[in-house]
Design a protein around this nucleic acid. Structure first.
Length: 341
DNA sequence: TCTGGGGTCCTAGGACCC
DNA sequence: TCTGGGGTCCTAGGACCC
């Protein structure tokens, strides 16, 4: 028996949940995002595969999606429905007997001992489908990084294996942003250093990169490019470090008295959520996105960690007082950071 | 036609202390 | 009367992910 990591990723999860409860939408372009009105500010959470064929994708402004695919069905985000479906999926995964680490609504890592990981993966797909009607792709790897990267190559509804044996054959020639944790900005910085591909980054000097990109980031990037990852899959329950609420206004706010009123409403919601967790908050951070799109944050450390709503609201106001009030506000956010553990 | 909302982790720079 | 060097904590910003 060998230890394997499986990465399970639900296919077009949010759109698939919507189609499940509205079967007449099957096969149609479906776009979920914002409050479902594509004339408003908001972005696409998930597009169904038929919608993706029109060039609609996650993160795209809803207005752009509506222009690319006017015949799409636009639906509002229904968090509770997705959380409920997600809980069913995770329960089905745990029923497989594997150690399960939840990565998000629609993703999990499984650690399992088996001589036939592909057969285990097929079994997991069957369990998820039987329990929820949803399809998923499974990446099989000799560590979590390789399992995660395998999944993209098995979409949709497939199983794909990626290990040290074929790492460079599969990944070596790809640009560095194919790695999990390297985005457009880091890929550009690496390119400027002459490192365009995964293979080139894998052969780079870790100390040299540490000097240029930071003591932890540099060596980590080289290990990433080599496919190395010894982080174990953990079933330990998730403990959030922070909890926040933010809102983009449909119309920019230029009246700062109105900004303060909105802030207090957000702070009250955050305080409510903090009280619900029964874990004291140590600090409150306020985020302001000015028009057109400049974002600033300021924080206020509370006198002592607390779950008291009045103290959290007061902390938010104290942080807001650190902002310059010379521009209109597009987005306002409040985040509470929990005391240590 | 501008660019959501939920998070996490790392870095750099300043303050402060010995 | 010239001001080293190291460690640690705090804060704001950046990058990334789903």
């Amino acid at each position: 028996m060998t230890g394997w990591v499986l990465h399970v990723d639900l296919d077009q999860f949010v759109a698939a949940v919507e189609v499940l409860r509205r079967p007449e939408l099957a096969g149609r372009p479906v776009v979920v995002g914002g409050d479902g009105d594509p004339t408003k500010r908001g972005v696409v959470s998930t597009a169904s595969y038929p919608a993706r064929a029109y060039g609609v994708h996650s993160g795209q402004p809803l207005r752009v999606a509506a222009r690319k695919c006017p015949e799409a069905v636009f639906l509002p985000v229904d968090r509770e429905a997705y959380e409920a479906a997600s809980a069913q999926v995770m329960a089905a995964l745990r029923d497989s007997g594997a150690t399960v680490e939840v990565l998000g609504w629609d993703e999990a890592l499984l650690a399992v001992d088996t001589d036939d990981p592909e057969a285990f993966a097929r079994d997991v797909q069957r369990r998820v489908h039987d329990a929820t009607g949803l399809a998923c792709t499974v990446g099989v790897g000799d560590n979590r990084l390789r399992a995660k990267l395998a999944t993209e190559r098995g979409k949709p509804a497939g199983v794909f294996r990626l290990t040290a044996a074929d790492w460079y054959a599969v990944m070596g020639a790809l640009p560095t942003d194919a790695l999990w944790g390297v985005g457009a900005k880091t890929a550009r910085r690496l390119r400027e250093l002459g490192l365009s591909t995964v293979a080139e980054l894998a052969a780079a000097d870790a100390q040299d990169l540490a000097a240029r990109l930071g003591p932890a980031t540099g060596p980590w990037l080289v290990r990433l490019a080599r496919g190395e990852d010894d982080t174990p899959v953990s079933a330990a329950p998730y403990l959030a470090r922070s909890l926040g609420k933010e809102v983009t206004f449909q119309t920019d706010l230029d009246d700062w008295d109105a900004v303060r009123r909105e802030l207090l409403a957000l702070a009250a919601q955050v305080a409510d959520a903090v009280a619900g967790q029964d874990r004291p908050a140590a600090r409150v951070v306020v985020k302001v996105r000015y028009v057109p799109f400049t974002t600033r944050t300021h924080g206020h450390t509370l006198g002592e960690p607390t779950t008291d709503p009045a103290a959290i609201e007061h902390g938010a106001l104290a942080a807001l007082a650190l902002f310059s009030e010379d521009r209109a506000v597009r987005l306002l956010g409040v985040r509470a950071e929990f005391a240590d553990p």
